[in-house]
Design a protein around this nucleic acid. Structure first.
Lengths: 209, 209
DNA sequence: TGCATCATTAGTAGCTGGTCCTAATAGCTT
DNA sequence: AAGCTATTAGGACCAGCTACTAATGATGCA
């Protein structure tokens, strides 16, 4: 690499690197700071703006504004939580203290735009809502849970969740939820749910457990 | 051009709102999507581009490129003046492959009407989204999770979720999420997340790695 | 009724950060 | 000397702005 061609090596500013070296550097620079304009890059790499443009073209590096847009879209798209009123699925069967079934029609908004795969928390939302609904108490709160996502769910899939109360120990219930698409298991969870009276709640407002 | 003043009933946005209402909407729109240009806003709000410019001037809303730049800078970690009351339910810090922080402002719709306690799956949704966002891959999917709800969260609480990548084994990452309200832990989870890197997608981006 | 003020729209000039194209030049290599 | 690559220059054009001037219409109000 360092076998120079010509020895104009002692330029007054930084020595100019070879083309490939410069392009490697360019990629690194824009990765570190996507907001660098061609002009800034030209100054840093000690070449003309036109050369930077040619390099970007060759490397397929998009212009600054597009790079910024990409970052924004990535951030915005990724932190999309549950929609406002969206509480998970239609109850189609419910036997208090025993079990229940709900159905969730999946839509675009629930999925990653890129892949059409439904975000995991929507499956949990369905299961959690159902599990809480199944508990025969004034107020029921989820204490802990273990989840397994067996297979991706795609937009348009109809998810059928089935909850069964496995055990009741005092005010604590263990609920098992299994969700299926076309009979195939896609999600399962075991939840610990606490049944509370209003008094318990009042007590909790002040003190910590 | 538009001689009439009373064409109510077409669409919600076809009608022209009052100036203050329009400006309120404008602020909301740019907060939801910082990449909207003046032209797009003008169409959405059914006024001219010039009116949008005047509104932005009055409201101190910066131009689109500046808004994009702000988001990028915030995400890059060169946090400027992260205002306390400003962000609601979005990402405030993100370092790919390492960790991130998001804030969720809880609302009525997220809670049980009876108790004002936020439904557990919203906390998981926040944590899950954040965990997926920190993974440095084109596509990331949650494989399994263990959740603990330490204390109920009430409507109005501001939930700060912090995610940390604990371990990476092949395409599998273990991410720990802890959510707090006023410094007190309300929720925690350990998630296993799978990174699905699509080679062709990478190649399409110009050989950047 | 007339006049002032506000809201909205139109249009101009100029800026940044680009794209796309044509050319010229420098420095090898054959 | 001819051919090649790399680099630089310049012009025409574009989107999305800023900053300014000006016209028009509705509204208030004395």
């Amino acid at each position: 690499m360092r076998t120079e061609r010509g020895d104009w090596g002692l330029s007054r500013l930084a020595r100019r690197a070879s083309k490939s070296e410069r392009q490697r550097l360019l990629q690194q620079l824009v990765r570190e700071d996507p907001l660098l304009t061609d002009q800034m890059l030209a100054r840093k790499l000690n070449v003309s703006v036109q050369t930077i443009r040619l390099d970007r073209l060759e490397l397929g590096v998009p212009e600054m504004r597009a790079r910024a847009r990409q970052v924004v879209e990535r951030v915005q798209g990724r932190v999309k939580s549950l929609g406002p009123a969206e509480v998970a699925g239609d109850l189609i069967d419910l036997e208090l203290g025993v079990g229940g079934i709900s159905i969730l029609e999946t839509t675009q908004e629930m999925a990653f735009a890129k892949t059409g795969i439904v975000r995991g928390h929507h499956l949990f939302a369905q299961g959690n809502s159902l599990a809480v609904a199944v508990i025969d108490a004034e107020v029921a709160l989820t204490g802990s849970a273990r989840l397994v996502f067996h297979r991706p769910v795609r937009v348009g899939d109809r998810v059928v969740a089935k909850a069964t109360v496995k055990r009741v120990i005092g005010n604590k219930s263990i609920v098992r939820v299994e969700s299926r698409v076309d009979g195939e298991k896609v999600f399962s969870a075991t939840l610990t749910i606490f049944a509370l009276d209003q008094q318990d709640l009042e007590a909790q407002k002040g003190g910590r457990q």
